[in-house]
Amino acid sequence: MQKILYKAADRGKGDYGWLKPNYYFSFGQYHNPENIHFGALRVLNDDYIAGGGAFPTHPHDNMEIVTIPFTGALKHKDSTGGEGIIKAGDVQIMSAGTGVQHSEANASATDSVTLFQIWIFPKKNNIEPRYDQRAFDTSERINKWQYVVSPDENDNALWINQDARFALTTLQTDKTISYTNKFTGNGVFLVVINGSVKVEETALNKRDALGIAGIDNFTITATEDSELLAIEIPMN
C-alpha cells in the first residue's frame, strides 16, 4: 500500500476577494511543480464563494469537471444549453470534450457557497460536450457508500468519461467501512469532508486527504461522525 498524506493545513491557498480557494494540487495562485496531480485527478479545489461572487464565462476542453456543493446554491450555464442551480445534496458533472464555454455564480447576493470542484483527465478526448446534474438522497449514504459518479450504469450515478468513480459516505462514530476498487490498479483519493477517521493506522481530520495506491481494498474507521469522499481514478 502506497500512501500520500495531504494535510488540510498544508494545502495551497488563494484569495480573490469574492473567492477563497484551498488547493489540493497546483492551481491558480498556488504553484507547486511537485504537486500537480494524483493519477488522473488533476484538480481538487475546496472553494468559498462570497455572496454575489461569480466566475464569468470561460472555456474548458477535454476535462471531466465535477462540482459537489456543501452549503449555499450555485447557478450554472454553459454553451451546451445546460443551465440550473445546484445545492447541498446535488452533484454536477460536465464533460468539456471538444470545448465548452460556461459560467458559475453564487445564486445569492448575501449567502456564501462552499463546494469542491474536481477535474479528472478524460478517458477519450474530443467527445461531444455534455452536462448533467442530480440530487442524491443523503440518507442513502449512512454507513455505506453512495456512488454519485461512475461509468457503470449499474451504480445509478452520473456518467463520467473515465474509469473513475466518486463515492460519498456519512460514517458514524466507531463504524468501519471498506472501499474496494471497481477497476484493478486504480488509486483512491480519500477526502475527509467533516469529522475524523483512521485508514489502517493513518489518522485523518477534517479536510485532510490520503492518496492510496498499490492496493485494491482498504478499511476506514470513524473516530467521530464523519463525511467522506472517495475518488477512484486511474494512476496512469
Rank of each mutant, 00 (worst) to 15 (best):
D10Q: 07
K13E: 04
K13P: 07
K13L: 08
G14K: 02
K20V: 15
N22E: 12
F25Y: 02
G28K: 07
Q29K: 08
Q29W: 08
Y30T: 06
H31E: 14
F38I: 07
L44H: 06
L44N: 07
D46G: 01
I49K: 07
A50Y: 03
P56C: 03
T57I: 09
H60F: 04
T67W: 12
T67P: 09
P69W: 07
G72M: 08
H76A: 01
G82K: 12
A88R: 10
D90W: 13
A96R: 03
S103C: 10
N106I: 08
D111T: 09
D111I: 03
S112Q: 13
P122M: 07
P122L: 01
I127P: 10
P129M: 11
Q133H: 13
F136T: 07
F136V: 08
N143P: 05
W145N: 02
V148L: 10
I160S: 07
N161G: 05
N161S: 09
Q162S: 13
Q162Y: 05
D163Q: 12
R165S: 14
R165K: 15
L168Q: 13
L168R: 15
K175V: 11
S178K: 13
F183D: 04
T184D: 11
G195D: 02
V199G: 08
A203T: 10
L204N: 03
L204T: 05
R207D: 02
G214E: 00
G214L: 02
I220W: 00
T223S: 03
D225T: 11
I231L: 11
M235A: 07
M235Q: 03
M235F: 00
